[in-house]
Simulated assay, not measured.
Amino acid sequence: MATPLTADKLLAALRAEGVKVVEYGSWRTHSRAGHGAWGPINGVLIHHTVSSGTDGSVRMCHDGYADLPGPLCHGVIAKDGTVYLISSGRANHAGRGDSNVLAAVVAERKLPATNRNDTDGNARFYGFECVNLGNGADPWPEAQLLAIEKAGAAICRAYGWSAASVIGHKEWTNTKVDPRGFSMATMRERVDRRLGTKPGKPVPAPKFEPFPGVDFFKSYPRSPIVTAMGRRLAAEGCSAYAEGPGPQWTAADKESFRRWQKKLGDAPQYCDGWPGRRQWDALKVPKV
């Protein structure tokens, strides 16, 4: 049974992983103690704040609001990668979620679909709120993604867990959509690579761009990943571009990828223009 880390051990684990940490206010004692259990701990939950600006987002997560008192997480991850520690105890971040998901996290196996909300996640997960509007268009800077990776790895390393213990709020409950704008599957791959190195050491960069997830493309992102993908599609003779490609995902990108799916010989139902993991991996988009 995993007991919660003390404030000192949580801080030490994050710093050992190379996280830039700011201790915010009385974070060591700021918690929802007396409003439910805190532990046993089973994983890390990633959120987005639906807000902009570091100061206001940190204050909101510290104080909460009328219907949901703070703290609303254990740490706020700013766009520059700084982690502001808000609490080391129970926090109002996860709410109720699916007991089948919890069982999968404990067993470190593939997550099931969520279909019930019967378990108190605030007792079981560390929570990190990431500053982002959550509209699919607000960018996720690499510094911020790297901090998510490091924070998740730090807690996994402290408990001896695998990357399967890091999940998104939308994977915990079917009532949430966060985090939106990057793939949790890809984030777990990043955490897994980091756990294969010593804490605080550089992680070898992958040669090719990891699959960002179909939700990434369905949010019509503007990203250098889209440009790199388009160039590979053109090189494979699958271009539907009148000009470009460029960073904004468009109908031309979707049609170009559909041509790639057909070139792979996939069945018609898998040639809809939305990238799948196997199809993406076969394209070998250079890491950007």
Rank of each mutant, 00 (worst) to 15 (best):
Q248E: 09
A164K: 12
W140D: 09
C156Q: 11
P40I: 12
A235K: 15
A242E: 03
I86T: 12
K110I: 00
T54C: 15
T49C: 14
L283P: 06
A66Q: 14
P212H: 12
D138C: 13
T82W: 00
A12Y: 01
A66C: 07
L85F: 06
K198L: 10
R116Q: 12
H35T: 13
E189Y: 02
G196C: 08
E108K: 04
F211L: 04
G43I: 06
G213L: 09
V191S: 14
S31L: 05
Q144A: 10
L14A: 05
Q279H: 10
N100D: 15
N115F: 01
V19S: 12
D67Q: 14
F211N: 08
A235W: 00
A113Y: 01
V83K: 05
R90Q: 03
R232Q: 09
I41W: 02
D80A: 04
T114K: 14
C61S: 15
R232S: 03
L133H: 13
T49V: 08
S57W: 00
G273D: 08
E142W: 02
V22S: 11
R59N: 10
W140L: 08
G200S: 08
R194T: 07
E142V: 01
G81D: 01
H74F: 01
A267D: 15
S88L: 03
L102V: 09
A107M: 03
R190W: 00
G53Q: 13
R194C: 06
A252S: 15
Y65N: 12
A240R: 15
M60P: 00
D215F: 07
K262M: 11
V214F: 05
K201D: 13
A234W: 00
A37R: 06
P112S: 07
A12H: 04
Q269Y: 01
N115R: 15
S26N: 15
V83M: 02
V22M: 09
K110Y: 00
S88D: 05
F217N: 08
T6F: 01
T175C: 07
I41P: 03
G265N: 09
G70M: 10
Y159F: 07
R96P: 01
E129D: 09
G160W: 02
H93F: 08
A158T: 06
A147Q: 10
R190Q: 09
G95S: 10
Y84A: 11
C61Y: 08
Y126P: 08
D67M: 12
G168D: 12
P275K: 14
G246V: 08
H35G: 05
V50N: 12
A94T: 12
L283E: 13
Y159I: 07
S162P: 03
R59E: 07
P245H: 07
S239G: 05
R28P: 00
E149V: 08
N135E: 11
E189R: 13
T82V: 03
N122W: 01
R222G: 10
Q269W: 00
H74M: 06
R32A: 10
V22I: 04
